[in-house]
Lab assay of single mutants.
Amino acid sequence: MDTYKLILNGKTLKGETTTEAVDAATAEKVFKHYANEHGVHGHWTYDPETKTFTSTE
């Protein structure tokens, strides 16, 4: 398992979190669920070199 990072740049919520996942697709599902639960619906990007997802509203 690898550690993946999420950076949230929402209108009402900003911050970072991490998750352990078997691959990027699994981490993306976890992070999108997390963002949706916190009302963040933004544009998603992923940097495979740093294993970092960013959601920007």
Rank of each mutant, 00 (worst) to 15 (best):
K14F: 10
T19L: 14
D47E: 09
G10E: 04
G42Y: 05
K14Y: 13
E16R: 06
K11P: 12
E16C: 15
E57N: 04
W44E: 00
L8G: 02
V40C: 04
E37I: 13
E37R: 09
D23A: 03
G10D: 03
I7F: 06
L13D: 05
M1I: 09
A25P: 08
T17R: 11
V40P: 02
F31W: 00
D23Q: 01
T19I: 15
F31M: 03
V22P: 15
G39T: 03
T19A: 07
E37Q: 12
L6E: 04
T18F: 13
D2Q: 14
K51T: 01
N9K: 10
G42V: 05
Y46V: 00
A25N: 08
T17L: 15
I7E: 04
D47A: 06
F31G: 00
N9I: 15
T18L: 08
V30F: 15
D2S: 14
K5I: 12
T50K: 07
L8W: 09
T56E: 10
N36Y: 14
L6M: 04
M1Y: 12
G42M: 07
L6F: 08
T18G: 02
E28N: 04
T56I: 09
A24T: 05
T45R: 07
Y46I: 00
G10Q: 04
K32C: 10
H41P: 05
T17W: 15
A25M: 11
F31Q: 00
H33Y: 10
T19R: 04
V30A: 09
D2G: 08
N9A: 08
G15P: 04
A35F: 04
H41F: 15
A21K: 00
D23I: 02
T17I: 15
T54H: 07
F31I: 00
Y34Q: 02
E49W: 10
D2F: 13
K32F: 08
M1F: 12
V22M: 12
G10C: 10
G10A: 06
W44Q: 01
V30Y: 15
G42N: 03
L8I: 13
F31H: 01
A25R: 10
F53C: 00
D2Y: 13
G42H: 03
T26W: 07
K11I: 15
K5D: 04
K51N: 05
T52L: 04
K5P: 04
L6P: 04
F31T: 00
T26E: 13
K29V: 11
